[in-house]
Amino acid sequence: MIGSMKNLKTEVAETVQEESGSSGFEALFMEHWAHVYRILHRLLGDSSEAEDLALETFFRLYQHYPLPEKEFNLGGWLYRVATNLALHSIRSWKRRERYELAAGRYALDETPEDHPAEIMAKEEEHRFVRLALAEMNERQSQLLIMRHSGLSYKDIAKALKLAPTSIGPLLVRAEREFEKHYRALAQEELP
């Protein structure tokens, strides 16, 4: 977790876009594509959905292009928009049904040597996590996603436009809220 935290820290480093025109945007796209895709893939567990929403994130960014210099926190903006799109997608029951199936299939494809029952149990847990995050207040969900993806308090504060000292208290509240939703969902599924 700590190792990946360092990688992600660099991934969300603030970028100031000074170029203009489509070649400038292409460079920006190339630089951030993998990062945005990974955020979405982890959240959704579905590669095609992640790719669609990653493209949608860049469409939305393109609407702001050329980006305002200096004050625009590109890393934070991408994180915020991508996670919002993912949470919105999870909330939609039709999409949810689709990604649940896709997530299970993906997991089996990726780790064929593992025991299917264990994989399914793990995916079931991931499913509850995703649903719990989608049910929560958007800012609390984003906070948890960012922190547990390895972002520092400073980067989270910048992305969500919060004071760095408020991250600790907000995390405590968000994790308690998350546990409440998670347990309620798991309880619902009990036979």
């Binding site: 992600l8 990974r38 893939h41």
Partner: peptide, 19 residues
């Protein structure tokens, strides 16, 4: 529970094709 969000496993579709 949330640890899988930090995973960097899995391939990423080609940025060139995505562009």
């Amino acid at each position: 529970r949330l640890a899988f969000l930090a995973s960097t496993d899995g391939s990423v579709p080609s940025a060139q094709k995505a562009w």
